[in-house]
Design a protein around this nucleic acid. Sequence first.
DNA 1: TGGAATAATAAGGTCAGCCATAAGATTAAT
DNA 2: ATTAATCTTATGGCTGACCTTATTATTCCA
Lengths: 221, 221
Amino acid sequence: MLTQLSESTEMYLKAMVELGEGDEVTVGRLAGRLGVTNVSANEMVHRLTDQGLVSHRPYKGVSLTETGQAAACNVLRRQRLWECFLYEHLKIEWARLYELACALEHATAPEVTEALSVFLGDPKFCPRGNPIPAADGSFEPLIGVSLREVPVGATVHVLAINATETDALRYLQDRGILPGCEMSVMEAAPMDGPLTLRIGGQDVALGLLLSEFVIVKLIET
Amino acid sequence: MLTQLSESTEMYLKAMVELGEGDEVTVGRLAGRLGVTNVSANEMVHRLTDQGLVSHRPYKGVSLTETGQAAACNVLRRQRLWECFLYEHLKIEWARLYELACALEHATAPEVTEALSVFLGDPKFCPRGNPIPAADGSFEPLIGVSLREVPVGATVHVLAINATETDALRYLQDRGILPGCEMSVMEAAPMDGPLTLRIGGQDVALGLLLSEFVIVKLIET
DNA sequence: TGGAATAATAAGGTCAGCCATAAGATTAAT
DNA sequence: ATTAATCTTATGGCTGACCTTATTATTCCA
C-alpha cells in the first residue's frame, strides 16, 4: 500500500469514517472534529484530493475514494487494536483509550499491526464497541442509530461510543454510559437542550452534541 | 516532566546516550548516527541548548544536562520496553526491533510506559542486551567494551548490540552475533580493515565501524 | 609551525501543516 | 428574493526540521 501517510493525513481519513454518515462530510464538521480552522481543513482537503484519497464536491462535501477508504480502514484497524491492547493487557482507563491508542496508531508498521491482532486473538470490536476492520480492509459498520435521533420514551441498548475527546469519554464513563448498557430516553429539553436518560435507576443529563456520538439499538419504543 | 519533546529532539537525546562515551559527543558523530548533515545537527544542538537539554562546548562536544539526561533515559526506557514487547509477545524479527520500537516510543504516554513495564514484568534488559532505565531515571550502564577495542586473540562474551540500522542488525543476526554469544577475535586486517571473528566454528568478517557497536566483556585474552 | 581535518556560522531555500484576515461564491431559509 | 450562514479562495505569515553552499574558526598532528 503506497507511500506512508502523514499523521495529519491519517487523522483526516479517520475523522471522515468516524463522522461518515452516508459518507459525505462537510469540511466544517471535519474542521470541528479535528480542532482546526475551516480554512486549514479546506487546504488539507485539497492536499488529500491531490493524493487521490478523497473527492470534494465544493459546497457539498467530501467523501473517501476507494483508496482513501482502504487507508482509513487501515488506520481504524490500528487504532482499535491498540485500544484492545491498552484496555485488556495494560488496564488503561477506558476514557483514555482513544487518545492513547491514537498516538500509537500513527507509529505502527503493518507487521506490528498484524502481529498485534494475532496476539489479541483477532478481536472484532474495540472497547468502545466499534468494529475492527479486517486485515483485508473489509469492515462491517454497526447497525445502529445515534442516540440523538431516538424518540423520547424509547429504551435502547448502547452499541458503541464514537466520541473521541477524553473529557467527553470520561463524562460518559462516570455515568455508566458504556457499550452494552441499557437506558431509556425520558425527556428531550427544548431548543436543542439536553436529553434526560434513565440508566440503572439514575437520571442523567446528556447534551445533544455528545448524544450524537452514542450509537444505540432501539429495543423498545 | 515539562513540555512534550518533539520526535526529533528525542532522537537526538537518545543518540547522545547511545554514542555517549564518557558523555561528550562531537556534533559530527551525532550527525552521522542520525543521518543528517553536520550543519543540521549543529542547528539542532542550538535548539537543544536553548531548551536546556544539552550543553555545547564549541569545537569540543555536546553533553547532556541533568534535565537532558533524565529525558534521554526516559526515551530509552520506552524504546527498550517496546523492544521487549515486540520480541516476546509479538514475535517480531530481532533485527527489526529497534526500528519498530523506535517509532512507537515517540508516541508513548507516561502511563502507557509504566503499564507496559508492569505487563512485561519490569524487565531489566532489552533483547539487544541493553539495560532498561528504571522509572525514576536510574540507569546502570553496561560494564563492557566495544569489540573494536579488543586485542586480537581475545575471546569475548557479547553483552549487547548498540547498532540501530536494520541492515546492520540483520547482518549480525544472520551470523549469530547476538547478546549472550561467545567468540574470538582471530585477526584485524590492516588499515582499519575488518575483524575476523570465530563464532560457533565459523569465521566471520566484521567491519570496524560495525564492531564498534558490539559491546563485549573480555573473558580471555 | 603549517596544514589538514574538523567544527561552527552565515545566508538562503524547501516543505508540511497550521494560523489570520478578507473577499467572493453558494446554499438554504424566511 | 433577499439575507444569513456556510463554504471557498486568496494572500501572507509562522514554525520546526531539514537542505546546500560558502566562509571562518579551531584543533591537532607531523
